[in-house]
Computed example of a mutant assay.
Amino acid sequence: MKPTVLAFDVFGTVVDWHGSIAAEVTQLLPQADPIAFASAWRSGYKPAMARVRSGELGWTRIDDLHRMILDQVLTELKIDHLTEAQKKHLNLAWHRLKPWPDTVRGLTLLKQDFTIVTLSNGNLGLLANMAKNGGLPWDLILSAEVFRHYKPDPQTYLGVCQTFDLKPHEVMLVAAHKDDLEAAHACGLQTAFIERPNEFGPKVTRTDLGQESWTTYHAKDFIDLAAQLKAAS
Rank of each mutant, 00 (worst) to 15 (best):
R196Q: 08
R148I: 03
H149N: 05
G44W: 01
F8E: 13
P30V: 15
T60G: 06
G201T: 01
L107E: 11
P168N: 06
W100Q: 06
G12H: 04
G12Y: 10
F114E: 04
S120C: 10
T207E: 06
A184H: 01
H95N: 07
N123A: 02
L181A: 04
E199V: 01
H169F: 14
N133G: 09
A40S: 14
A226I: 11
L57N: 14
L92S: 11
L136A: 10
P99S: 05
L28V: 14
I116Q: 08
D179N: 11
Q155S: 14
I21P: 06
N91I: 02
E56S: 13
Q162E: 14
H18A: 07
F37D: 05
V73C: 05
W214H: 08
K111N: 13
V25T: 07
H18W: 11
L6N: 07
G19I: 07
H89R: 13
K78V: 10
A85Q: 14
R67M: 14
A186K: 14
M130L: 14
H185P: 09
A131F: 13
N123Y: 02
L158V: 03
F164Q: 06
F11E: 01
W100N: 08
A176K: 07
Q112V: 02
Q155P: 03
H81K: 11
L166W: 06
Q72A: 11
P30Y: 10
G122E: 08
Q31N: 12
L65K: 01
A183L: 03
G159L: 08
W100Y: 15
A40M: 13
D180A: 00
Y157P: 09
H66S: 15
K230T: 13
R61Q: 13
D180W: 00
G12D: 11
L92P: 00
I62W: 03
L57C: 09
V25A: 04
L126K: 04
D63A: 15
I35F: 06
I194N: 02
D208V: 05
P202I: 02
L82F: 09
D221Y: 10
W59A: 02
N129W: 09
L77P: 02
A85F: 02
K132I: 06
A22Y: 14
V14I: 15
L166Q: 09
W94C: 06
D71S: 02
D63H: 15
P154H: 13
A226M: 09
L82S: 12
G188P: 08
Y217N: 00
A23Q: 13
A32F: 09
D63E: 15
M49C: 04
R42A: 00
D102P: 04
H81M: 07
E24D: 15
